[in-house]
Structure formats: structure tokens, C-alpha cells
């Protein structure tokens, strides 16, 4: 048979176990962490079709107040997973405060149709712990581990 790895039950098992591990890990990340961290304000300027700053990196647990204004027309300010959806109108300042309790990368999206490239108007909120993006680091580790294990099995099967 040509496609040995595919028929390999052990490999299937390993894939299932690693998927399980990933899902347990994800659910553990979604449990919020509260408690003693910095409070500060970040000023965000929305314009067609980007946010400035385009990548906002904060520490997990920080209490952040976003003050969002627009440089041109009406935009939105929606943060994935943080239940934030602001309307940002010209000449006004929209304010929201969140506690960055979940780690990882969360897209900031424009929620008001603002022109041609509106669906691509995206920013990023990256929640790190002591400067380390654990979601990224763990993803790399899992990828490396999976690569190693599949390498081992391909090697064994020949």
C-alpha cells in the first residue's frame, strides 16, 4: 500500500489526542484571569481602512480604556471575544473600558460599512503575559511536536 501513514491507527490516535489537547488548552485559555494590573488609556484613530495604532499589545489583566476617534467618516470598533462594539462618529470620542482577561490575538474590526475596503478594516489586540504571547508560543510548540511525531511515524513505516 502506498499511503501507509493514512492507514495507521496510531497516527490517527495521535492526531485525535493532540486535537483533544489543543481543545483543552483553548478552553483553559478562555477562563478569564482577574486582578491587580495596570490601568491606562489607549487612543485609537480610525480611518478608511485601518486603525492607528494597527497592533495594540497589552498585558493580560490590564484594565484598558480605549478612546476611539475617527479621522474621516463613521466607523465601528468591534473587538473579537471582548463584547465591544462602538460606533465612532466624526467629531465625537467613543470610550470603552475592558479588562484584558483572555490571552491571545483578537481582531479589531470595523462594524459600520465605511466604503469599498470596509471588510478589510482590521486592527489587532494582542494580549500577552509578561511580554510573551503564550498562545503563539504554545501553537509553535504544538506544531513542532506534531511535526516530530509525524516524522517519527513516517520514518517507522518505511
Amino acid at each position: 500500500m502506498k499511503h501507509k501513514i493514512f492507514y495507521n491507527k496510531k497516527l490517527g490516535l495521535i492526531i485525535i489526542i493532540s486535537l483533544l489537547m489543543v481543545s483543552i488548552w483553548i478552553s483553559s485559555l478562555m477562563i478569564p484571569i482577574y486582578g491587580g494590573s495596570d490601568s491606562y488609556t489607549i487612543e485609537v484613530k480610525a480611518r478608511r481602512f485601518a486603525y492607528e495604532p494597527d497592533r495594540i499589545i497589552v498585558n493580560q489583566g490590564d484594565r484598558i480604556t480605549f478612546k476611539v476617534t475617527t479621522l474621516d467618516i463613521t466607523h465601528g470598533f468591534y473587538i473579537d471575544g471582548y463584547d465591544v462594539d462602538l460606533l465612532v462618529e466624526p467629531g465625537k470620542e467613543s470610550v470603552v473600558t475592558i479588562v484584558a482577561d483572555k490571552p491571545g490575538k483578537f481582531k479589531i474590526r470595523c462594524s459600520v460599512t465605511c466604503g469599498y475596503m470596509h471588510p478589510f478594516m482590521v486592527g489587532e489586540l494582542v494580549v500577552v503575559e509578561n511580554g510573551i504571547n503564550i498562545v503563539f508560543v504554545l501553537s509553535i510548540l504544538i506544531a513542532l511536536l506534531t511535526a516530530l511525531v509525524s516524522m517519527y511515524y513516517v520514518w517507522k513505516r518505511w
Partner: peptide, 21 residues
């Protein structure tokens, strides 16, 4: 949307396994 990145990671790792094979 907060789970999209994880779906993407899983998809990519599946691709990596097949590519290695």
C-alpha cells in the same frame, strides 16, 4: 470570532502533517 485563530492553527497543523508525510 475569538475561536477563529484556533481553528486556523488546527487546520495549519493538519496541513503540516500531510506535507511532512
Amino acid at each position: 470570532p475569538e475561536y477563529i485563530p484556533y481553528i486556523q492553527v488546527v487546520l495549519l497543523i493538519i496541513g503540516l502533517v500531510y506535507s511532512i508525510k
